[in-house]
Design a protein around this nucleic acid. Structure first.
Length: 569
RNA sequence: GCCGGUGUAGCUCAGUUGGCCAGAGCAGCUGAUUUGUAAUCAGCUGGUCGGGGGUUCGAAUCCCUCCACCGGCUCCA
């Protein structure tokens, strides 16, 4: 691609251009010119033309001075900078025909293997990922050895877009946004709100069983609270600005986190070692000023609800508590059929310690606790430096969306720092004061993001226990309206959520529409059913399942729900 | 926040050398039909063409600006 761009746009400067999971990209400085998508076709054609020359890729080791002089002559400042950062003796060039580039390799043997090319998108990207440096033009593309494979890939992309939670959420009337309410502030519609409530109740039950205690805290907190926690120093300037009282001119912040409030609850009375672990849980709504360009459907918003809890415990309880939280996260993922996730241990960046609060000793202890607990749970993990929170390391559970973007859902964090800053204490069995350790944890992460990812994984076909409407009752004509209502009431007695499609439409139309609404079961009721007290069952995506009595069907559904909720136990 | 793109009815989309009162399908409403497993028929309603400013005899169409959204980058307590 770089060769094609150089041929078509002489004088451009090349940055870096690696292969990625889905294709490749190249960062290019076009000078004053802006590249538009309409121009990409010509580049694709040029690339295919070059590929047909079937030139071999030749690898060549180059000394640093030679490499510098080559790109110096070419006048490519970006390559010069890259080469300057490389060790002499590790520099390799790749050549294809007339084109030479700095590249680590490896490559295809010959350009002729490339038979199909698609340049997918243009984006801006900062040189070397640094916001303060020049933004280059990044062109994303992908190639295949066969045209047919490219077409298949593009179909796959289209299919993935159909699962996009923003699209499905609108179709199923789960949530919406309003520019008037504000960017990134989701509005949950009735069906979405009820679905979310079911998820919350599910987790509340699990937490009750695990000894969590509910608390409720307000949406704002005094500025001093966040000065104490360290959030103010870290995020104060880039956050929603303080709310001021008219007379006393006190300052309050919309809460960006629940932990400071929970620390104050801990401090509301003296604690004994016998009280620990203390597990305080709250579905706490928080507000963060995210950059406008970062907002993304329900996955990145400015107001969201964390399924938060803070566990205050003694040092001897830490590992056990941590492992129990891992169990809860895994239980939830299993119940909801999330087979693919990555457990990521997020440590601090050892070269950038000033970004974090707390002593080296505390960090070392916290990081060790996470690594050990994950190992003892035999969790397969990846370790990423620089991804920790500013007050402590984390174990994050990452899941991909329909288009392969990775999102953090559940998170568990060990924190020695906030207990210190809030001067939390308990009286030990030795009658002396001790400092508890805090675990922050949110198995869903945020309700918004979790529901978003759930939508994309299920394409809106939620498990029966969660789905907004479980059953659509379809009377053949309005003569059977009364019987349909009877069926609905009976199902309601079994806590089965149903709706009646009483529109003046033919049965085929009703089936079609309710299929598209992804309602799991449809009950066709007409003369025969009304006479016999039965329903003709139809399953979404599968078709006719035969006749059952109303009670049989109710038990059948109850069983399915039961199985969904218990198959992971 | 930055780079690029998009914005026409609730939804999906027509409408580009600037020119009669801006169109279609679906949804909605009204009526007819009373229906047996993926779209019954007819009529009607609905749009400050994202907002504001400008160029022009004339702007959905050209220019400026703001807003929102989309793809990335940066950020993510």
């Amino acid at each position: 691609m770089a060769e094609a761009f150089e041929a078509l746009y002489p004088g451009i400067q090349l940055g870096i251009g690696p292969a990625i999971d889905n294709g490749f990209y190249y960062d290019i400085d076009f000078g004053d010119k802006t590249l538009t998508e309409t121009e990409l076709k010509a580049v694709e054609d040029k690339m295919l033309e070059l590929a047909r020359q079937d030139n071999a890729y030749n690898r060549r080791e180059v000394s640093k001075p030679d490499a510098l002089s080559f790109f110096g002559e070419k006048g490519d400042q970006y390559k010069l900078e890259l080469i300057n950062d490389l060790q002499d003796g590790t520099i390799t060039f790749y050549e294809q025909g007339q084109f030479t580039d700095l590249c680590r390799g490896p490559h295809l043997p010959k350009t002729g293997f490339i038979k199909a090319v698609k340049l997918l998108s243009i984006a801006g990207a900062y040189w070397r990922g640094d916001e303060k440096r020049k933004q280059l033009t990044r062109v994303y593309g992908i190639t295949f050895p066969k045209q047919k494979m490219l077409e298949e890939y593009l179909v796959l992309l289209e299919e993935a877009k159909k699962r996009d939670h923003r699209k499905v959420g609108k179709e199923l009337e789960l949530f919406t946004f309003s520019a008037k309410v504000g960017q990134g502030l989701p509005l949950w519609l009735p069906k979405g709100a009820m679905l979310r409530e079911r998820l919350e109740n599910f987790l509340k039950k699990v937490q009750r069983e695990h000894g969590y205690l509910p608390v409720i805290t307000p949406h704002i907190g005094h500025k001093d609270l966040y000065v104490t926690s360290g959030h103010y120093a870290k995020y104060g300037k880039d956050s929603f600005q303080p709310i001021r009282t008219p007379d006393e001119s006190e300052e309050f912040l919309l809460k960006p986190m629940n932990c400071p409030h929970h620390c104050e609850i801990y401090k509301s009375k003296p604690r004994s070692y016998k009280d620990l672990p203390l597990r305080l849980a709250e579905f706490g709504t928080v507000y963060r000023y995210e950059q406008s360009g970062e907002l993304h459907g329900l996955t990145r918003v400015r107001g969201f609800t964390q399924d938060d809890a803070h566990l205050f415990c003694r040092a001897d309880q830490l590992k056990d508590e941590f492992k129990k939280v891992i169990d809860i996260v895994l239980y939830i993922f299993k119940t909801l059929d999330f087979p693919q996730f990555t457990a990521q241990i997020s440590l601090r960046d050892p070269n950038n310690k000033e970004k974090y609060i707390g002593s080296d000793e505390n960090w070392a202890k916290a990081e060790a606790a996470i690594i050990e607990a994950a190992a003892e749970k035999e969790l397969e993990t990846v370790v990423v430096e620089g991804e920790a929170a500013f007050y402590g390391p984390k174990l994050d559970f990452m899941v991909r969306d329909a288009l392969g973007r990775s999102w953090q859902l559940g998170t568990i964090q060990v924190d020695y720092n906030l207990p210190e800053r809030f001067e939390l204490e308990y009286i030990g069995s030795d009658d002396k004061r001790h400092r508890p350790i805090m675990i922050h944890r949110a198995p869903f992460g945020s309700m918004e993001r979790f529901v978003a990812v759930l939508i994309e994984h299920t394409a809106g076909k939620f498990p029966l226990w969660l789905t907004p409407d479980q059953v659509a009752i379809l009377p053949i004509s309005e003569k059977y309206q009364e019987y349909a209502e009877k069926v609905s009431q009976l199902l309601n007695n079994y806590d089965i959520r149903s709706l009646i499609d009483d529109r003046n439409e033919k049965i085929g139309k009703k089936i079609r529409d309710n299929e598209l609404k992804r309602i799991p079961y449809m009950l066709v009721v007409g003369e025969k059913e009304a006479e016999n007290g039965t329903v003709a069952v139809r399953k979404q995506g599968e078709g006719d399942k035969g006749v059952m009595t109303i009670e049989e069907f109710a038990h059948f559904l109850q069983n399915l729900v039961e199985k969904e909720l218990n198959h992971s136990k």
